[in-house]
């Protein structure tokens, strides 16, 4: 198991590199720099990512490690284009071509998120009148799958995750944290994303469901998916990850 550790030193900003991208990779993040400027608090600036890079190939599962506030979440959100990086490139294989997420246009990002890049977030956005099945089946239906097929797939995932059947057709507004998390997982795992980002996917689950998630991740790896995740749970991480990327805090 290789271990790539990067210390967050102050490095100069690079212009986009023109190094060739490895053919077999699915995602290639290069020299990401990201900071936050709070204008309404005197304009203070926090640098968080300083020159972070990562390459993932099919079957990889990379654990992002580091103390709280060290930038793991920022890095993941930057990959998903939820945060905008200040400089660097994030290349993803999309529809057979390399696309740079850092500079892609809005409609391209929407397309990438639809087909090529999945995200299991910590929060589930609940809309009062939409049932759990509908919420979870939406991304799959967005890729063009028939509603009945999509919902069946989601239901089978719900079963595996031990989500009680009586909850399937009601809105997740009243669900517990663990139940919401399982809806989130089913939502992301239903689609065959080549790259999947997992933000603390087992934080609210009991031991049984944790092992279900481990199994699901293993299946994805076998299918050739590349996963990048933040795992609080050491045992889960040990079971699924073959790489790790460690983030260190600033002083």
């Amino acid at each position: 198991m290789s271990d790539q550790t990067y210390l967050l030193e102050r490095l100069p900003v690079f212009s986009p590199s023109h190094k060739p991208l490895p053919d077999e990779a699915l995602l290639c993040a290069r020299d990401l720099y990201k900071g936050f400027t709070l204008h309404n608090q005197g304009g203070i600036h926090f640098p968080v990512l300083e020159g972070v890079s990562l390459i993932v190939k099919p079957g990889d599962c990379v654990a992002l490690e580091g103390a709280s506030g060290s930038g793991k979440s920022t890095f993941m959100r930057s990959l998903y284009a939820n945060y905008r990086v200040d400089s660097g490139e994030i290349w993803i294989k999309h529809r057979g071509q390399w696309k740079d997420i850092a500079t892609a246009q809005a409609h391209e990002l929407i397309d990438i998120r639809c087909y090529s890049l999945g995200y299991v977030s910590q929060f589930l956005r609940v809309i009062p009148r939409v049932s759990a099945v509908d919420v979870a089946a939406e991304p799959l239906m967005d890729t063009g799958v028939e509603p009945t097929v999509a919902k069946d797939k989601v239901r089978s995932l719900f079963s595996r995750l031990n989500l009680p059947e009586r909850l399937w057709s009601i809105s997740p507004t009243t669900f517990s944290g663990g139940e919401k998390q399982r809806v989130n997982i089913a939502r992301a795992f239903a689609v065959n994303y080549p790259v999947l980002l997992l933000d603390e996917p087992t934080s609210a689950l009991d031991a049984d469901n944790r092992s279900v998630v481990v199994q699901l991740i293993k299946e994805k790896k076998q299918q050739g998916c590349a996963l990048i995740g933040i795992f609080h749970d050491q045992s889960v991480r040990k079971q699924v990850c073959n790489q790790s990327l460690t983030f260190a805090l600033h002083d």
Binding site: F36, H39, N40, R77, N82, Y83, R84, A106, L109, I110
Partner: peptide, 21 residues
Amino acid sequence: QGLTDQVLDDPHHSYTQSLIS
């Protein structure tokens, strides 16, 4: 301007930041 979640979660402009907060 940008994706909705981008602008709301990572606002850059001072006005956007004050609007979100």
